[in-house]
Write a protein that binds this DNA or RNA. Structure first.
Lengths: 334, 334
DNA sequence: TTGAAAGCGCTAACAG
DNA sequence: CTGTTAGCGCTTTCAA
């Protein structure tokens, strides 16, 4: 038995509209006395706004819908959703996600979502990639998170991969490292961009970026967790020649984990012999490695927050691709 | 400009109610011809049900609300929410979570949630613990996930910790291990229960459970990721005496990761010299360790699915505590 | 400063 | 087999 504005109105001996005005501070003006009294009664009766009813007039529910491209199964989801949530909360909005998986199409997920009449819709990808959104949804989807809309029809928020690689490489150079090898993740958009930043930093630092060592972490064209790892053999190889590296940059924290094990096998110590750095900041891994891993944290939360801001902005800004900076997390591996 | 039943009714030259019946197969009967024609028009116009409007009559939205006790920040969230989602989808329900964090109370989160008029509400914890739910919410919250309501006022779904430890210990014994040390996580409910299962399995196997070695992973009363790790020194100690263990059971995968590193330092190989096994199955870690880690997977998805089932059941079953079994994931560390 | 009434989209009860 | 109508809870427009 839920209670409504009507119940309060009856109890207070005023009209429903007065109650509505008193509680939600709308245009309606009334004596402070009345307003206070109504609020007390509402409190006492345990009144809770009915958003569904409100939405009948407004046309929308205070919800931000997220089309989660496989995202919900990923630990990275938490950052994006969390950021979105904290950005939305300020405007009294809630976030709800629907997974786009298997054979479901964007159209079908959007339709399902639309039944709830969300105020705004975002599309979020599990890893940085290009996504082609059918033209008819360009209006509906307000922002792409962690992915770039292939035809730039929608504002996209993506991690600044090249910038992160540049920053981390500079950090290694500043730490006195002179021979940095990069074990990258093959076949990913992020990897391509990071490689550019890596080589650029070397060039700027007076080294030959084009000549730098960049090796694939796995023996497949595209990195995946299940692919056969090449990390051990690469590290062994790298450490067996006179020109051994004094730093290894890793495509992600899991690769770094393997590099740790491989270096240990070679008898090399971290960071004295070889510094190790990486991308992601999967906290459970990075902080638990010995020594704790220095890594560029993916800006998942920041992208989420920014997305909320864009979605809830008064006026629709022009479409653009926004690169969101990583955050350097200094631990002890450099 | 969204289109409504009314628009379809006009276009089809029938009443709204007929359209409603045609689309949602309600009690209304009509010629197959009419029904088909209406459906076609709806399709053509791009009609999408308005749940908010429907809820005005039903009294609830087809939503399952989840009070997420810090959960959303955890990678474990994904299993629980994912399971809930897949369980709910069958009934055309969506799941939405609200985080209970910082200074927010259950009451305040429930109130926020209630504004959306969810059909059912679950409470989910990040790690297995006891939760005292104020009595007045016992009716509102339909099920507790990954936690036990302190006064058994609400049906609770918890991982079968003791059973999991028993199973894993038996697995080690069956693999021929005779001297199993257990590096446990101090101060957690899960740990207490697992220790019981561990000792029980040893007793049943003809070993002296009461005498078995159980060591704390960190030097604090309660395990946390930030506490100072004791794993290295424990392993060194264990391996330096004549009665070295031939298996180490770990409180979680991160501890196992440290055990791997420590064993490697001691020159011991896994699993030949020492088998390693653990709890959690954090896939990114467990599958990436070398050798891949054999571990008991927490039943997060299963709890989520079961929760959906309980919440959406026709009639409310009597309150109980349901222990959900872990799943043994065999890899190569045993 | 407050009230009355309309209407949002839908379903259920009742008529035809 | 189909139509009409009322009403869910709220906000907004118009009237007092």
């Amino acid at each position: 038995m839920t209670i409504s504005l009507n119940d309060i109105a009856e109890r207070a001996g005023v009209s429903v509209k007065t109650v509505s005005g008193a509680l939600h501070g709308g245009s309606a003006r009334m004596s402070d006395d009345t307003r206070l009294r109504i609020r007390e009664i509402a409190e006492e009766l345990g009144y809770v706004t009915n958003f569904a009813a409100r939405s009948m007039r407004q046309g929308w529910m205070p919800l931000i819908g997220v089309i989660a491209d496989e995202l919900v199964t990923s630990p990275f989801a938490t950052g994006i959703i969390g950021g979105l949530d904290s950005g939305a909360r300020a405007s009294d909005m809630a976030v709800f996600a629907m997974t786009l998986s298997g054979r479901r199409t964007v159209a079908s997920v959007l339709e399902e979502m639309h039944r709830f009449r969300p105020r705004a819709v975002a599309y979020a990808a599990m890893y940085h990639k290009r996504v082609e959104l059918p033209a008819e949804f360009a209006e509906t989807v307000g922002v792409m998170i962690n992915c770039r809309e292939a035809n730039d029809r929608v504002t996209s928020l993506v991690p600044d991969e090249a910038g992160a690689a540049l920053e981390m490489t500079n950090y290694l150079l500043n730490a006195g490292r002179r021979n940095i090898a990069y074990i990258n993740l093959p076949g990913l958009l992020a990897s391509e961009l990071r490689e550019i930043g890596f080589r650029q930093a070397l060039d700027q630092g007076g080294f030959n970026g084009a000549n730098a060592t960049v090796l694939p972490a796995v023996n497949r064209a595209i990195y995946s967790d299940r692919a056969q790892s090449l990390v051990h053999s690469h590290v062994q190889q790298l450490m067996s020649v006179p020109q051994r590296p004094d730093a290894i940059l890793c495509g992600n924290d899991r690769v770094a984990m393997e590099v740790y094990a491989a270096l240990r096998r070679c008898g090399a110590t971290i960071p004295d012999d070889v510094a190790v750095a990486s991308f992601d900041n999967q906290v459970e891994i990075a902080s638990r490695l010995d020594p704790p891993l220095t890594t560029m944290a993916l800006p998942h939360r920041a992208m989420g927050r920014k997305a909320a801001q864009i979605l809830l902005a008064e006026d629709r800004a022009p479409v653009e691709v926004k690169k969101i900076p990583f955050r350097l997390v200094e631990r002890l591996s450099v």
